[in-house]
Design a protein around this nucleic acid. Structure first.
Length: 288
DNA sequence: GGCTTTGTTTTATA
DNA sequence: GTATAAAACAAAGC
């Protein structure tokens, strides 16, 4: 469930620790997880880290780039002499890397390592020219996303666009929020929490929302994403940051995963339903 | 061993 | 072509 705040958290970590390092060796345990010409990035230096939606981009000094998607359980963990052992989460599979889930292992210069771990192996990495990145449907079709940092590579989600995209749709509002082609970066956790905060029933059709509700929801998206960023993301499942440490948003989540529990803003009980085949949590008492 | 999990892609339908 | 719905897919933990 790494979503925008989680990938952004990794981006910030990699920017701090990984940029400037050279790739010396790549070890691929599961071939399908890293495609593209690996030879092209051997010996090159990492210059920049970007994020578009839930996708991460690592750029090299020769015009090539490495695109990464974590899907559900991907992790990128950096280690060097200074950061090794900095409270590595149990979620990376123990204190010692590589773990049995370290499917791609990069040896860097100055004794540093970068591990791609993925318990379920749903994620992917792809090496390609920077210029070809935007030819990938995943990036070219990514919708505008909430701008929550000054170093921003995507299209900006404006209130006007947000209103338009919701008002022209007959789909349930939660499904629209999670459609990456319409709005980038929002997954199940933040869709649930934003709707809870805006007091809107996730089953409502997009076009049934009035202007006040649209503004509330738009603001709620920024609120939950910024809040999660400030906690270093949500580690409910397997997410860890670039040093292998947990985030803390899950301890502050508003409704996600809280079925049967008491609502935190009224005296309702949180319900779990299926919407678009996904677990959906809401308080029927105050989300109308 | 069937069920569940999610982000994305693919296929089917109106 | 468009909009939407539903199914498929990945693998592992319980």
């Amino acid at each position: 469930m790494p979503e925008l705040p989680e990938i952004e958290t990794v981006k910030l970590g990699l920017q701090k620790y990984l940029v400037g390092h050279k790739i010396e060796k790549i070890e691929i345990k599961i071939p399908k997880m890293l495609t593209g010409p690996q030879k092209q990035i051997l010996g090159t230096k990492i210059t920049k880290i970007k994020r578009i939606g839930k996708g991460l981009i690592i750029e090299f000094d020769n015009g090539f780039a490495l695109a990464v998607h974590f899907k559900m359980t991907g992790q990128l963990v950096f280690q060097d002499k200074n950061t090794k052992g900095l409270s590595l989460s149990k979620k990376v599979g123990g204190e010692i890397l590589p773990s049995k889930y370290s499917h791609i292992i990069f040896t860097l210069d100055k004794g540093a390592m970068l591990y791609y771990n993925d318990l379920r192996q749903f994620g992917w990495m792809k090496i390609l020219k920077k210029d070809d990145l935007m030819q990938m449907p995943f990036f070219s079709q990514m919708g505008p996303e909430p701008k929550v940092s000054s170093d921003f590579s995507g299209k900006e989600l404006t209130l006007d666009y947000f209103k338009n995209v919701l008002l022209k749709s007959n789909l349930a509002v939660k499904i629209i929020l999670m459609d990456q082609k319409k709005i980038g970066g929002i997954g199940n956790i933040y869709a649930n929490d934003a709707l809870f905060l805006a007091k809107i029933d996730p089953r409502r059709k997009g076009k049934s929302l009035n202007v006040t509700e649209l503004k509330k929801l738009y603001d709620a998206i920024f609120t939950v994403i910024k809040k999660s960023l400030s906690f270093g993301g949500s580690s409910d499942e397997n997410f860890v940051n670039a040093l292998g440490q947990d985030g803390n948003y899950q301890k502050h989540a508003l409704v996600y995963g809280k079925q049967g529990k008491k609502c935190s803003v009224c005296n309702g009980i949180i319900e779990k339903i299926q919407l678009g085949g996904r677990g959906t949590y809401f308080c029927p008492k105050h989300q109308k």
